[in-house]
C-alpha cells in the first residue's frame, strides 16, 4: 500500500451554479475507480471542505466514466454575484479536492503518476 495525493491518481474540474459547486473526480486509470469510491466518500469530502460549511454534499457515481460527481451546496459564499471571495466561482476548489490523501493498494501502486 502507498499513501499519495488524490492528485496523483485522478483529475477533477469544478463548476458553479448559484451557491452550489460541483466537482467531477475522474480516475486516470479505470482500475483506480474503486479506490476513489471507497475512500473519497461524502464524509471525507464534507470534512475536507468543512471550513466552507457545506449545507449538503452529494456524490453521484459514473462507473462507465470511472468518475464521480460531487455536489456541494452553500460553499460559494452566496455565489459569484454575492461573494467577497477572490475566487467567487470556486474554480480553484477542484485542486483542493485533489489535495486529499488516499491509500493505493499494493497491486495498483504502479498506476500512481
Amino acid at each position: 500500500m502507498a499513501e499519495t495525493l488524490l492528485h496523483r491518481i485522478a483529475h477533477a474540474r469544478a463548476g458553479d451554479k448559484g451557491n452550489r459547486l460541483n466537482i467531477s473526480l475522474i480516475a486516470y486509470d479505470p482500475a483506480l475507480y474503486e479506490t476513489l469510491r471507497e475512500q473519497v466518500t461524502v464524509e471525507a469530502v464534507t470534512a475536507h471542505f468543512r471550513h466552507r460549511t457545506p449545507s449538503a454534499v452529494a456524490r453521484h457515481e459514473l462507473p462507465k466514466l470511472h468518475a464521480m460527481n460531487f455536489v456541494l451546496d452553500g460553499v460559494l459564499d452566496g455565489g459569484v454575484t454575492q461573494a467577497l471571495n477572490l475566487d467567487a466561482h470556486g474554480k480553484c476548489l477542484s485542486f483542493h479536492l485533489l489535495d486529499l490523501k488516499v491509500t493505493v493498494p499494493e497491486a495498483l501502486t504502479h498506476l500512481i503518476r
Binding site: 477533477a12 474540474r13 463548476g15 460541483n22 475522474i26 455536489v71
Partner: peptide
C-alpha cells in the same frame, strides 16, 4: 477522454 469527461460533467448536478 480526459478533456471530454471533465467537460461532460462541468456544471452538472444530478447526472441522471
Amino acid at each position: 477522454r480526459r478533456t471530454v469527461t471533465e467537460q461532460l460533467l462541468y456544471e452538472v448536478h444530478d447526472p441522471a
